[in-house]
Amino acid sequence: MKKRKAAWWVALILGALALGVFVARGQAPTPPYHLQAAADLPAPASQTITTPGDTTNTLVRLSIKPAQRQRFVEAIRGVLEPSRQAEGCLVFDVYQQRDDANAFVVYERWADAPAHQRHLATPYTAAFLAQLNGMLAQAPETLEPRDLVMP
């Protein structure tokens, strides 16, 4: 336990020193993505998470061709509400990157892996994914983070 706390403090101190060096040089590091709610889509929504260890989380960054942006917004809008109403859906939100109107992040949180698999097998998800391929400017970036419960 003491080793873990010591390692955490070392990482914190090194990170603070690195940040100080960048700031002193006028080069403060910027996070790769600044997200905001997409103005032309329904607001983010979520449910209370009671068993965080069982959840399946997915973050997908989608870079959309500029000429396909409106088509993408219409297509993802057709998936939002059915996904949010699906059994086991805790979060299904779409964010737009602040500095890129054609970059979106889809954040999904499901009660468990079977709920996520059922969602992927629905007709509305299949229809959306079939449309998506022609709208992408580049391959999607996908993260599947696990819940971390701090003591």
Rank of each mutant, 00 (worst) to 15 (best):
H116P: 02
Q117T: 12
S83F: 01
T55A: 08
P66C: 06
Y107E: 08
L120G: 05
E74F: 02
I76A: 02
F128A: 05
F128I: 04
F104W: 09
T122F: 03
G53K: 09
D112Y: 06
V94S: 04
I64Q: 09
D54G: 07
N102Y: 10
A115W: 11
L90F: 11
R109I: 13
T58K: 13
N102Q: 14
D100H: 15
C89K: 05
V91N: 12
E87G: 12
F92S: 00
E141L: 14
P123K: 11
S83V: 02
K65G: 03
V60F: 02
Q131Y: 04
I64S: 09
V106F: 03
G134W: 00
T56A: 12
A75T: 07
G78V: 07
G134D: 13
D112Q: 04
K65Y: 04
L90G: 06
Q131M: 09
L132D: 04
V60A: 07
A113W: 00
R84N: 02
F128P: 06
Q68R: 07
Q96W: 10
V91H: 11
T55V: 15
A115G: 09
Q131F: 03
A130H: 14
Q138D: 14
D99H: 13
L136N: 08
I76C: 01
L80K: 04
H116I: 00
L80I: 00
V106M: 05
L90Y: 10
R61S: 08
A121T: 07
A111C: 05
K65M: 06
Q85L: 08
P82V: 03
I64W: 02
T58M: 14
T142E: 10
K65P: 01
D99M: 07
E87V: 12
K65C: 01
C89I: 04
L62N: 04
L62K: 09
N57A: 12
V60E: 05
V91L: 11
Q68C: 05
T122S: 10
